[in-house]
Amino acid sequence: MNDEPSAPDLLRAVERFLERDAVAGLDGVARFHARVAANVVAMVAREIETEAEHARREWEGLAALLGEEGALPETPALRREALARRNEALCERIRAGEADTGAMRGALLAHLRGTVADKLEVSFPPRERDAGKTGRA
């Protein structure tokens, strides 16, 4: 086990440095990129904190839609692979027209609403949406 500060805390220290010091000391394109960098490290911090929970929710949603059993792998990299496989299976069902109408459509829209909301929580949390930040690329 690594010592404190945790990885997200370290990333937030980098974010603070970029936002307060780097942005103030730079101009033009470099200043813009410092803002983008601050947003990127904050995004990574949020991903570290939420990845396991988001993956579990998406996995359970996919299991219900596809009627597939099986445990979600333990490591983030394997989780990504497993989720991508199930999402590809879901895409095949959609391409086959199985979600064009009926109960499957409603269930699918609800599932996708949840996974997109989770992705946005990482990439674009509500508190930033209207903050007027100019560093969002």
Partner: peptide, 23 residues
Amino acid sequence: SLELASLGRRIAEAEDALLELME
């Protein structure tokens, strides 16, 4: 480029807009 690297995560915003219209 750092800017290009970060843009992949914005796909979710377009997906969100599409879901809204489909709903």
